[in-house]
Structure formats: C-alpha cells, structure tokens
Write a protein that binds this DNA or RNA. Structure first.
Lengths: 337, 337
DNA sequence: ACCGGATGAGTTATCGTTAACGTAATTTGA
DNA sequence: TCAAATTACGTTAACGATAACTCATCCGGT
C-alpha cells in the first residue's frame, strides 16, 4: 500500500532501454523482433522499474480482457465453491481471471449482474442461472458473445450448456428406495423455479410410474437446510405416513433429517432419506445421508473448457451431460445391515 | 451469445443524437451540461442502440476500475464465502465489482495472484492471507495502493486490517472448559503458519496460565476436517488422557469428533470439544459443537467499508478488532444438563 | 556491383472514454 | 442596458498499449 508512485508505463521502460515502445511491447510479449542484446536491455529495464503491463490498456486495444464472469445464485451454498474452483483451475492455466458474482436476491438482479459483466468486457460468462424464467433468459443471453449455462439450457445460438442428468439420478434413487421396500414417497422438491427441480421430479415420476406408483406428496421449498426442515415438518405433520423422502439436495435432506429428529421419527427405521449433490455435510450428520453425487468440480472444469473453446471459436459440443452417482449411506440402510 | 455485433460506442450514440461524444458522456454520467431536450434525445439514442459503456476504456482514462480483488485461501472452506458475501454487499452498493481469487496451493501463488490483481488495475484488495510469511508480505503489499488484510497485520503504511480477537476467544473457551471441570487440555492448533493459530494458542496459554495450568499437548494440523481427524487420532492414541480438546476451527473440531467416535471415546462424556467460527456444520453434527462464533459476514462488510475509505482517502482506523462469542453446545455439556 | 529478402527497429493510428479547456449563446443584475 | 456570469455544447489531447506499416541495414548469390 504505497504512496503515490505514478504507474510505470511501457514508455518508461522504452526510455530507460533506449528503444521505442513498440520494441518493448514486442519483446515483453515474446514476439521477437529484437536482437538478443536489445532484448536483454529491455528485460533488465522492465525488471529494474518493476514494470507491470496495464491490463486495461492492453484489453482496450486487443479487444480481449482475459477475464471471465461467473454467476452463481449463492456462493454460501457448498455446491458452488467447488464449481468455481473447477472453473478457476482451467481458467488459470490459460491466463484467464475470474470475476465471481453472487446473486442471492431476485431475477432482476441476475440480469443486472449479467449486464455489468458484459460492460466489464468479460470474454465469456459461466452462468449458474437459478431463478430467471426461461423466456427472460434469451434477450439477456443475446447481449453476450460467449456463454455457458450450468444446469440450464437455451437455444443453440444463444448459449451452450453443462448439465447434470438429474432425471437419471432420480431414477437411480427411486430404484434404490424401491429395492429397500419403500412404497409411499414424499418429494421435497426444492424451488419451483429451478430447472433441476423439475428434472428431478420428472425422473422420480417416471421411475415410480414404471412400477405403477405415484408420489404421495410433492412440496416445493427453498434449497436450504431451513427450507428442507420446514417442508419435511409440514409433510410429516399431516399424519400421512411415508416410507421415504426424496429431497432436492443434501441441504434440504439435512433439514428433513432434523425435522424427523424433532418429531421422533427414526431415520432410516421409519423413513428413508435421500438427497442430491453429495456435499461433505452428507457424511457428517447422523445417520449419514444417501446421496446422488454430482461431480461439481468437474462441472466447473467442463464449463470453463467449453467456454474457452467458444471464445477461441473452436468446435464445441452444444451440451455436455454429466452423470450423477448413487452413494448409499445410513439414511437408507438399516444400521444392522 | 450473439454473432458479431460490433460494439456500440459513445460515438454511435452521439451520431444518432446529433451531438458530440463529450455531450453524450456528460449526460450519461449525470454531469449535466445539456438541455433537458438534448438529454432526452441522448438517452433515447443510447436506449435505442442498447449502448453499454466500455468499462475498460473508462477505467483507462479515469484511472479507476471500480473493481476490487478478494484473495482467499480456499473458497470451499465455509468460512470464506460469508466474508465474500459481506464484502460484496457493500461493494455492490458503491458500484464496485469483485474479482475473487482462490489460492489453495503455495505462498508463491499468493504473491502471483496479488500481482495479477494489481496488473488488472483493481482499485483495492482484500487479502485473507494465509500462508505467506510476514517478511515476504511487505514487498508485495508495497506494490498496491489500497489493501485491507483479514486476520493479519502489517506496518501501518502498508495495509490496514480487520482481525478477530482470537486470543479473547481462546480465553472465553478456556474459562468455559475450566468451569465444567476440565484440567487436562489438548490443543489441535491448526496450521503453524497461520496468524490465527498463534493468536489462539497465546490466548489458550495465557488463560490456562492464570490458573497455573499448561496445555498437555499441542499439535499443528491442516485447517480441515481431515486435518482435525488425523491430529486428534494421533493425540488420543498416545494413551494420554484429555478432558478437553481445543480445536483451531469447527472443521478440525468435527474431524476430532469423528476421531473420538472411531476410538469409542464419548463426547462430551470423556472429552469435551470446542471449535472456532460457528459454521453451520457445528450445529448439524451429533453432538453439536461448542464454538467461538466469529462474525464472518461482518468481517467482509467491515473490510470492504474500510477499503472504500482508503480508496477515497477518507480517514480510516488502522485496525478493526471484532469479538468472537462463545456458543455453548452439546460437545461441552453433558446431555442431561 | 546489384537485387531480393531477412532482420531489427521506428512511426502512425487507433481501441472507447473522459479531462481540460474553449466558445458561442443566453441569462442575470444593478 | 451592457458587462459579467452562466449555460450548452464542441475540440483536442490524452489514458497505456498494440496492429499494421515503413524504413534502414546487412547478407548472400550471381
């Protein structure tokens, strides 16, 4: 946190090395065009002055900011930091910097943030869009050049996607629950506006339907512990009996677990519980929670890799589908087993 | 993700509105200097062309990027997303955008990231520095204008700080443990290179010393569940008996809890457990974990507020100390109580 | 000697925006 | 009523970097 050093420019380096700006630019960008001796003089001068190129000026001229925007609904949700890390690992190795934006509040805010990133001249955006309705998505997407959506889709000319096959996950989960004898199902379905919520629900209905069963109850809720707790409490308080609760994610499953505990309902003895995402927490509560593991880090990596392809106008798949994996734990297995 | 629209510039708007660029610039920045009628014409033109100012060009000229860098050791650690959110809430309301950088690996990488942020022309940096040694910190800080450190300090001319009074927290924790009868203490101290680890350790030693006691064992470890697990296992396997384990943070405390569970040691019956940070997880494990709550969101808010003061050359305190709060839970209280 | 082509380096013109200054036209005040 | 202040704009020149071009110089081959 130094005082007032005026920034060191290319000009300064050029002056000290006794050459023109262009020569310095060429050398420092390893584009040759100078004798070995001149190169050394320039590098020494840059070192001595502690020259740091001004990324803004560079971007302005080159029309590339080497900056990527990442929009997540809520970075406090353990689902997203992993995605960010995955994306960052790829970005870093290609010289890109990430701008993280958290949404939290409204759909309006989502569009607003997108707009701001575009104004910031990001080269691309990874958008884990949560609450914006599909029809509102298109006009926003049209304002940016390169966008990868996570767990959401759009017209091919507007954006590409990395999605998890939640329907498959739901089927795996349901089959597992059927196998352990469950017949009466409650679905704690997560936010009604979420793409993933409907994907899961469809999978659940389909898998149950194949056995001539339908969910006994479906309740939407916030994708949080609190939301799961409230939803489960309200479901269980109605007096109806359930063999299993299928939860939107592990957070809601933990919430449901707490609701059961409060009501004196044994998990998995009375009710089996299943979640999605396989966050750490799923293995830390008692009983541990059976979950459909989603490769979060991989989502981030893939999304960024896909985005870089788009930016560089290399061919890229329109959509990448990642498979969830069933991880059977205590919440669906009698402890004696 | 549209095709190839060439960007709309001020020039275009000026042309459509039939005025000069400067007039457009003034109007769109609400600096007046145009009649109401001209203003309307300009705003209409901007709207019609869907004009978005180019933030890079603006920054280049104005020498303000309205961008802040945030460096965290590991965004997957639930401690940091909250700080980010706090910082973002303040930043947003002042028109700033945040660039999040994750460190994870080495101290070198920390300096490298700092450098990159400076090159990006960020207006300031919030640095949750973890592993960089103090003497290496100074030269790096000197390259930036405005820096706020979190849980770390530096010379007044280099950076200001927001810190948690971990020593106080440690004292509160120790007093509580003494009050419930603990006499033999193990300290799972976290990373040896961490500022906070030593602050806590000093507090523990001081508080115990006041009663003529010293910790029976001190073991440094990674600030993760895994680290806590390993450390606790090794401590407890030595045969020595402990009444209480004081853990670096809640993650290590959870790790310690798992180690106890594996060894058949009852918590809190045989050993009491205390952590720091009050992350959600602390209330989700069984037993719940007594913790020294740290106002994470508030750290982020304060750090950003302080940073904005520095940037705007308003007077700001050199150091802000936030107090932790003891939250007594199951890991230190016999369940019958 | 002379020409063609590397090679090393400088010139010029932007990128999109704003600071600083300039200049008419209009309003104000005593 | 007329100078002084204000309003409404326009001009010019950067901010720091790079693309694209130009221009010497040098070297070998014929």
């Amino acid at each position: 946190m130094a005082q007032n050093e005026s920034p060191v420019t290319l000009e300064d380096v050029a002056h000290l090395a006794g050459v023109s700006r262009m020569t310095v630019s060429r050398v420092l960008n390893n584009r040759g065009g100078a004798s070995d001796e001149t190169q050394k003089r320039i590098r020494d001068a840059a070192e001595k002055l502690n020259y740091r190129p001004n990324a803004m000026a560079r971007s302005l001229k080159s029309r590339r900011s080497y900056t990527i925007g990442v929009i997540v609904p809520d970075i406090s949700n353990p689902f997203f930091p992993e995605i960010f890390r995955g994306a960052e690992s790829v970005a870093q190795s290609h010289g890109y910097t990430l701008i993280l934006s958290n949404v939290v509040e409204s759909a309006d805010r989502e569009a607003e943030i997108f707009d701001k990133l575009v104004a910031q001249q990001v080269d691309g955006i990874i958008w884990c869009s949560a609450r914006m309705p599909s029809d509102a998505l298109a006009p926003v997407l049209a304002t940016a050049q390169s966008v990868v959506l996570v767990n959401r889709e759009a017209a091919p000319d507007l954006a590409r996607s990395v999605v998890v096959d939640y329907a498959l996950g739901a089927r795996l989960g349901v089959d597992h629950l059927l196998a352990i004898g469950a017949r009466r199902f409650g679905v704690i379905a997560g936010p009604e506006w979420a793409f993933g919520a409907h994907a899961r629900l469809d999978g659940v209905k389909e898998a149950l339907g194949a056995h001539g069963i339908a969910p006994n109850a479906i309740l939407f809720c916030d994708p949080t512990i609190e939301g799961g707790n409230t939803a489960a409490a309200s479901l269980l308080a109605q007096g109806e009996r359930f063999d299993a609760l299928i939860c939107y994610n592990d957070l809601t499953a933990v919430g449901a677990l707490m609701a059961c505990r409060n009501l004196g309902i044994d998990v998995p003895g009375d009710v089996a519980l299943i979640g999605f995402d396989d966050i750490d927490l799923a293995q830390l509560v008692t009983p541990t929670i059976t979950s459909l593991g989603v490769p979060r880090y991989e989502i981030g990596r893939s999304a960024m890799a896909m985005l870089l392809k788009i930016i560089n106008r290399e061919p890229a798949e329109q959509k990448l589908v990642l498979q969830p994996k069933l991880l059977v734990r205590g919440s669906t297995v009698r402890s004696s087993a």
